[in-house]
Computed example of a mutant assay.
Amino acid sequence: MELASSDPVRPVGRGRKAQAAVRAATLAELLDRGYADLTVEGVAQRAGVHKTTVYRRWKNRESLVVDALAEHFATDIPIPDTGSVEGDLRALAQALVQSMTSPVGRAVQTAMLSDAGRLPEIAEARRGVLADRFRRAEPVVARAVERGELPADTDPAALFRTLAAPVYFRLLISADQVAEGAENAEDAEGVADETVRVALAAARAGALARARPVTDGEQA
């Protein structure tokens, strides 16, 4: 999804095209103004639709933001299959970096760190996204185990958390400047390579093993 321009646009009418324009405009307004200053009127003007068109589908600002973010979260992310666990993890890490540094990704992060992040619907959508990311890591780990690249008890969710955590820290906490675009690909690859090295080292050392059930004998 591309962010809507702040320049005047022609009316887009109704239907799916209008809905897509409204969602894109919502993310753009989140990035430019933040959740506190976002208004339905501002979104409608940016999208090139009348505000009644917005209210026909979304009852208020909260439902509009939730829908725009949910649509973004629902975007399919291909499961990499490069032939090696290192290549697969690098592809996942690069996709995460690119997503977070794109205009849409920055808008989503702005919303998550604002009052909008406390809306129950957005919190639920965020949990759903994390669960989906964990599921997508499962075939990557399964293939790596079959090739003998990772221990058999490697936990896919733990591996993805270890892969993603340094990316989130660098881009959200320490605020490293990794810009979008081909001219900044080297910076993005550097962040991805660093996090892959950490995740692989932990997994190969057995630090990311699935929790082993405690038996009755051990409890005694």
Score class of each variant (00 low, 15 high):
1 M>E: 02
4 A>E: 09
5 S>Y: 06
5 S>T: 15
6 S>I: 11
7 D>V: 13
12 V>R: 09
13 G>D: 04
13 G>S: 05
14 R>F: 09
15 G>P: 00
17 K>T: 15
17 K>H: 13
21 A>I: 04
25 A>V: 10
25 A>T: 09
27 L>H: 05
30 L>Q: 03
31 L>I: 01
34 G>W: 03
35 Y>I: 03
35 Y>Q: 01
37 D>W: 06
39 T>D: 06
40 V>T: 08
41 E>R: 14
42 G>Y: 04
43 V>A: 01
44 A>I: 08
46 R>K: 10
46 R>Q: 06
47 A>Y: 02
48 G>M: 06
48 G>Q: 02
49 V>N: 04
49 V>R: 01
49 V>F: 03
50 H>W: 09
50 H>E: 14
51 K>G: 10
51 K>W: 12
52 T>G: 05
53 T>M: 08
55 Y>D: 12
57 R>N: 13
58 W>R: 07
58 W>A: 11
59 K>T: 15
60 N>F: 03
65 V>M: 07
66 V>I: 13
68 A>E: 06
68 A>D: 01
71 E>D: 15
72 H>M: 06
74 A>M: 05
75 T>E: 15
76 D>S: 13
82 T>E: 13
82 T>Y: 10
82 T>W: 12
84 S>D: 08
85 V>L: 05
86 E>K: 00
87 G>A: 07
88 D>F: 00
88 D>Q: 07
89 L>Y: 04
91 A>M: 03
93 A>V: 00
95 A>C: 07
96 L>V: 01
97 V>P: 04
98 Q>V: 13
98 Q>G: 14
99 S>V: 09
101 T>N: 03
103 P>G: 10
103 P>M: 07
104 V>N: 02
110 T>H: 03
110 T>E: 15
111 A>L: 01
111 A>P: 00
112 M>I: 10
113 L>V: 12
113 L>C: 11
114 S>Y: 03
115 D>L: 13
116 A>C: 07
118 R>E: 14
123 A>Q: 15
125 A>P: 04
125 A>V: 11
125 A>F: 03
126 R>P: 04
126 R>Y: 09
127 R>T: 07
132 D>H: 12
133 R>L: 14
134 F>S: 10
135 R>V: 01
136 R>C: 02
150 L>G: 00
151 P>M: 08
151 P>I: 05
151 P>E: 07
153 D>F: 07
154 T>L: 10
155 D>S: 13
161 R>Y: 05
162 T>G: 07
163 L>V: 07
163 L>A: 05
163 L>R: 00
164 A>P: 02
169 F>R: 08
170 R>Q: 14
174 S>K: 07
176 D>V: 13
179 A>M: 15
183 E>H: 08
186 E>Q: 11
186 E>V: 11
187 D>Q: 13
189 E>S: 12
191 V>Y: 01
194 E>D: 13
197 R>G: 08
197 R>W: 01
198 V>T: 11
199 A>E: 00
199 A>M: 06
201 A>C: 12
201 A>L: 15
206 G>W: 11
207 A>G: 08
211 A>H: 09
213 P>W: 01
214 V>N: 04
217 G>I: 00
217 G>V: 01
218 E>I: 08
218 E>L: 09
219 Q>H: 12
